[in-house]
């Protein structure tokens, strides 16, 4: 038990060290680090809002000002998509030394997670600013927004951890994942409220990130949660997936590393 705790402490210490090194390395290369995190959401929001104003898109009954509605949806999706990439990026970036020294591989993912949390934090700040701009903020709303983003992050992390061993082995799969993360946004209620009962509509509403997006909007509107059960289910699922994903990484890491050594991708 004591050794186990020491192991955890060591892993966390190592993950901080890796994180510090990665952040140190990154911000020596780019000056606009934070800007790039929020920029895509701002661009998409601007574009879609213009489209909506000119009647190209019919968003349905959004309750919120449309730009805020879109921005929240895109941010929740972005946090999810970034988190999915975390385990793969962590392992891919450590190729050079994964095959040389043995260490707790969880530290790699943790370090990458801290990096992605910076992104979550920056996006959260942007969301708060926009919510304040539209003048509809409350402490309850802020807490709920944070919960939605955290859930989105964990959901992505868990999924990414489960996919990582396979995306490391098969480049095709990694490309497919990238494609889905790029365009999957359109299969979520990020831009509109699906109201008809068609196949697409039920697909969009059953996306695991949908309850997170909807709840974030409820929070911003200061309204009661429209899908409390779905939100609870997704949050529980995200916790479960993260834990299962980490265990899966632990199990499959040696098999993946062996293939890295063979001079593969």
């Amino acid at each position: 038990m004591k050794r186990g705790m020491e192991g955890v402490a060591k892993t966390i210490a190592l993950s901080w060290r890796l994180f510090a090194a990665a952040v140190g390395a990154r911000y020596r290369n780019a000056f606009l680090g934070y800007f790039w995190m929020v920029c895509p959401a701002v661009l998409i929001t601007g574009g879609v809002s213009l489209a909506s104003q000119s009647g190209v898109i019919n968003p349905g009954n959004t309750r919120l000002p449309y730009p805020l509605f879109v921005f929240l949806g895109v941010i929740v999706w972005q946090v999810f998509a970034e988190a999915v990439k975390v385990p793969h990026v962590a392992f891919d970036g450590a190729r050079a030394y994964l095959t040389k020294v043995h260490f707790a591989h969880e530290a790699l993912i943790l370090a990458q997670l801290y990096e992605s949390l910076i992104g979550v934090f920056v996006r959260f700040t942007a969301v708060l600013l926009l919510v304040a701009w539209y003048g509809e903020s409350s402490w309850r709303g802020i807490g709920l927004l944070a919960l939605c983003l955290a859930g989105s992050n964990l959901l992505g992390l868990g999924l990414g951890a489960m996919l990582m061993p396979f995306t490391m082995l098969f480049a095709d799969l990694q490309n497919a994942v990238k494609l889905i993360l790029g365009y999957g946004l359109f299969l979520t209620p990020a831009f509109y409220v699906p109201e008809s009962a068609g196949l697409l509509s039920s697909l969009v509403q059953s996306a695991p990130v949908a309850p997170l997006m909807n709840s974030a909007r409820d929070a911003a509107a200061g309204a009661a949660l429209s899908q409390p059960d779905a939100l609870a289910a997704v949050l529980a699922l995200s916790l479960l997936m993260t834990m299962a994903g980490m265990a899966f990484v632990r199990l499959s890491a040696p098999i993946v590393i062996e293939r890295l050594l063979l001079g593969g991708r």
Binding site: L14, L18, G24, A25, Y97, V101
Partner: peptide, 19 residues
């Protein structure tokens, strides 16, 4: 192992030994 070219020698010593 783990040496990063943009970091200083000092930072790399810490990184390498942590690994």
């Amino acid at each position: 192992a783990g040496f990063k070219p943009v970091l200083s020698g000092r930072e790399n010593v810490f990184l390498n030994l942590s690994l």
